[in-house]
Design a protein around this nucleic acid. Structure first.
Length: 243
DNA sequence: AATTGCTACAACCGCCTGAAC
DNA sequence: CGTTCAGGCGGTTGTAGCAAT
């Protein structure tokens, strides 16, 4: 049985107060990041170290770019999700100033729904063949009670479990291979499932066979600009996504 | 004006990984 | 080589605020 990361009896939970934020900011400004487990005690905070870390990384850090996601950021998230699956930290790493939590929330609350409304399965980025009425839910329809809800109860998967899912490894691998990047680095590459002949070219465009391209051509959604470019021999300038 | 339903997002939880010992 | 610990990650939950009725 794993020890709890902190004594929960003596730690605050829930929303952070301005005073707590200030204490955390002051402490990190003087001492730098790290040592999260002992930080609360040193900073005079009655919080779990993990909570402090999360608060700093997701909200207080000066590196964070807050505000709405730009259209190009949204496009990039879609493409990176097609390539990487739910590896939010990797995706966020390609979006300067964005955190994994922010990207994850944005995906679940905005992008996921857009894809669903376009008839695209957000899990594998495939165009759904059978358009069930559920796929055309009005945005205001109660999604808590259908399978498409962002809050859908899933088996609480972990990273390693997720990697084993077909989402990335089987169908998904095929699906995204067209969009994969040749400039992908080793770390990222190892995260992708190996295939006998991986095509990891991650140009901005999807190949004509891409389901998303098909979706765009068929449904022409007005909102989600996927900025699809067809690869025609001479590659369009590749986004350096994997630095 | 009150109630209900829904969305967005901050925060928490449990698990995994890698380093240190 | 096994154990412990800190840090990190993704999934999930709680709730404030807004919209609809």
């Amino acid at each position: 049985m794993r020890k709890p990361c902190c004594d929960k009896k003596h730690t605050n939970k829930g929303a952070w107060t301005k005073q707590e934020d200030q204490k955390l900011i002051d402490y990190i400004r003087t001492n730098g990041e790290g040592g999260w487990r002992t930080l609360p005690e040193h900073a005079g905070l009655h919080r779990c170290g993990k909570s402090c870390r999360l608060r700093w990384i997701n909200y207080l850090s000066p590196d964070i770019k807050r505000g709405n996601f730009a259209e190009d950021e949204e496009d990039l998230i879609v493409k990176l999700h097609a390539l990487l699956g739910n590896r939010w930290s990797l995706i966020a790493g390609r979006l300067p100033g964005r955190t994994d939590n922010e990207v994850k929330n944005y995906w679940n609350s905005h992008i996921r729904r857009k894809l669903i409304n376009m008839g695209i399965d957000p899990n594998n980025h495939r165009l759904n063949q059978v358009q069930t009425p559920l796929l055309y839910n009005h945005p205001h329809q109660n999604e808590k009670h259908n399978q498409l809800s962002p809050r859908i109860k899933t088996s609480s998967g972990t990273r390693s479990k997720m990697i084993e899912e077909p989402n990335v490894c089987d169908d998904h691998q095929q699906e995204v291979s067209d969009a994969a990047s040749s400039s992908i680095n080793e770390d990222d590459e190892t995260l992708l499932c190996s295939s006998s002949e991986p095509n990891l070219d991650l140009t901005i465009g999807f190949s004509p066979s891409s389901s998303i391209l098909e979706a765009k051509q068929q449904t022409k959604p007005p909102e989600l600009n996927l900025n699809v470019e067809v690869d025609q021999g001479e590659r369009s300038p590749a986004l350096i996504l994997f630095l």
